[in-house]
Design a binder for these strands. Structure first.
Lengths: 216, 216
DNA sequence: GCAGGGCTAACGCACTTGTATTAATATGAA
DNA sequence: TTCATATTAATACAAGTGCGTTAGCCCTGC
């Protein structure tokens, strides 16, 4: 394994276990077997460069599987449940039955919701082409709602999926997972579908109308 | 304002904005106007002590309102929607129309899902009595499901609510909130109710049966 | 062979960190 | 007032931090 690859793997684990800002670049280098204290700086430029590299390295394979999943049923691209499966399953596979433990979900949960982080810009764009298809499809699904509610639903689906997987990954790590990953993934799709299609209550409608009047 | 109180307020903001491990104790003390670099250590013992103090300080008022909300309708303690309102509204009020900006939701999102964190133990127990009523009520609601699924639903509700509020708080901070807090809170109840009551798909049932056989 | 460039090791520097110690000051009860 | 106690200020120190520089290594193309 190349030094660059070792740095990525080791950093992914340390970041997931202890939080990204809590890990020093020296420690990453040392844990990757590098005598050089500036190894991370040399290979990735900065801490953010390393974070990007981890994100991209894993997401490349995941999104590849996602595109394959989508391509298998082009006629179903308007079925929200199918889209959610395309969102969840490739992620779940990558944390489930690899040979050993996994850390990517916990890493992703820290990165994906940082203010200013954009999954579709820069070097990340190439490894989120499948994700974009999913998000666009889901967006079409919530077009009937008030625009602010629709956007909210999309983010909420992402939160449910990513934090749900991260929580599961942590449970597995401490040997306390109540379900195998495949079952959890299926349940996660159920939950995400429910969030997406949740009926808008009369209270919500009233509250939106009330505050809209007030604002005008 | 006492020094202790100033430290709590300032630390809450810094932790929310930059992440708990990324903020040094010196910086907290300095930002609170303390010349003493060991002020946090003196008042709270450690970083964790400070985190506990922030959690407790805010949660005391929030849970008080929650208990009042619950007490207003004792006959509705079996209505999941009412329980979710008791969960969400007091939290939402504390981040919505206070005079200024708020940071507690983002702080809470970092703390509440840390492995090993228990909202109901130690000094936190007193300020989560209302929360316990809610959780117990919700638990009764999911008794019909397979036990692992029920627990999963409860955690998922918590994730939706806390991360949903944190996201909203961050949006407000950058002036990009699509909805006022009261409307978002109502929508969050809709989402949480949907997650709680999401039907278990045939795929999930099949996956659970399959993997249970395999394990036996 | 051998020159060159990519990679690694070793080390330095200025600065920050948690932790501690001691002195000064505020506070409140007798 | 007076004195004990609680709080704050002013430093100190060893360890760790990001960042940078220099020198050696290995491997490939010529």
């Amino acid at each position: 394994m190349s030094a660059r690859q070792a740095l990525i793997s080791v950093a992914e684990r340390l970041f997931a276990e202890r939080g990204i800002p809590a890990v020093s670049m020296r420690e990453v280098a040392a844990a990757a077997g590098q005598g050089n204290t500036s190894a991370v700086r040399y290979h990735f430029g900065s801490r953010n460069g390393l974070v990007d590299a981890i994100f991209t390295y894993r997401m490349a394979r995941i999104d590849e599987r996602r595109r394959a999943f989508l391509a298998a049923r082009p006629e179903a691209h308007d079925d929200p449940r199918f889209l959610l499966e395309a969102l969840v399953f490739p992620l779940a596979e990558s944390i489930g039955h690899e040979d050993g433990e996994s850390w990517y979900a916990r890493f992703l949960a820290q990165v994906a919701f940082q203010p200013g982080f954009d999954s579709f810009s820069g070097a990340r764009r190439d490894v989120t082409r499948g994700l974009r298809v999913v998000v666009d499809g889901l967006r079409r699904r919530v077009e009937g709602l008030d625009p602010p509610l629709g956007d909210l639903r999309i983010t909420r689906v992402m939160q449910v999926v990513i934090h749900g997987l991260a929580e599961h990954e942590a449970s597995m790590a401490r040997g306390a997972a109540a379900l195998p990953t495949s079952a959890l993934a299926a349940d996660l799709v159920d939950g995400a579908a429910a969030v997406l299609a949740a009926p808008v209550s009369s209270l919500t409608l009233a509250e939106m109308a009330r505050t809209r009047l007030k604002g005008a």
